[in-house]
């Protein structure tokens, strides 16, 4: 059986993994908030007639 070559990869330390996870969560929350903000701003800009506009 030929010897399997393992590519050189850096193994993240538990601390680095934890902080990466925290960063990912923060980015997710920020993107979600940003999307929600633009949704609400759009509603505010279009005004109360948003549902009675002709299609």
């Amino acid at each position: 059986m030929p010897e399997q070559h393992e590519p050189d990869r850096i193994v993240l330390s538990p601390e680095a993994l934890k902080s990466r996870r925290q960063r990912n969560i923060a980015i997710g929350v920020a993107v979600g908030f940003f999307a929600l903000l633009f949704y609400v701003v759009t509603i505010a800009k279009v005004g109360p007639n948003i549902l009675s506009r002709p299609f």
Binding site: L12, S13, E15, S19, R23
Partner: peptide
Amino acid sequence: IDESDDLVATSFAGSTATPSDY
């Protein structure tokens, strides 16, 4: 593609920066 994957792995490997640091 493999090389770029390695580069990505290297650049993030040591970062322990938390959201509070940002």
